[in-house]
Amino acid sequence: MPTDARIREIAPRLTFQSHRVPTEVKVELVRRLVDAGLRTFELSSFVRPDLIPGLADAEDVFARVPRVSGLGLGCCVGNTRGLMRAVDSGADTASFLLSADEDFARANIGRSTTDSLAELERMAAYASDHDIVLGTYVIFAWGGPTGPARGGADLERLAGRLLDIGVDHWILADSSGYAAPPQIRELVGAALNHIPAENLTVQIHDARGMGLAALLPLLDLGVRNIDTTLAGSGGHPAMPGSQGGGVCTEDAVQLLELSGVRTGIDLPRLIDTANWLATEVGAPCKGFVRHTGLVPRGETAGRLAFSW
Rank of each mutant, 00 (worst) to 15 (best):
E156T: 11
R157M: 14
R157L: 15
R157G: 15
G160Y: 07
G160S: 09
R161I: 14
L163D: 12
L163A: 14
V167F: 14
H169W: 15
W170T: 14
I171D: 15
L172E: 14
D174A: 03
S175R: 02
S175L: 00
A180G: 13
Q183F: 05
R185Y: 08
E186W: 12
L187Y: 01
L187R: 09
G189F: 11
A190T: 14
A191S: 14
L192I: 05
H194N: 06
E198M: 13
L200V: 11
L200C: 08
Q203A: 14
D206M: 03
D206W: 11
A207E: 06
R208Q: 04
G209W: 05
G209Q: 06
L212S: 02
L212D: 12
L212Y: 03
A213M: 07
A213C: 05
A213V: 06
A214D: 02
L215D: 09
P217R: 02
D220M: 12
L221S: 04
I226F: 11
D227R: 02
D227H: 09
T229S: 14
L230V: 04
G232F: 02
S233Y: 00
S233L: 05
H236D: 13
P237L: 00
P237E: 03
A238Y: 02
G241N: 01
G241A: 00
V247C: 07
A252D: 11
A252R: 07
Q254G: 08
L255Q: 00
L255Y: 01
E257I: 00
E257Y: 01
L258W: 10
L258D: 15
G260E: 03
V261S: 00
R262N: 05
G264C: 02
G264K: 01
G264S: 06
L267R: 01
R269C: 06
R269H: 09
L270D: 08
L270A: 12
L270H: 11
D272C: 09
T273F: 13
T273K: 02
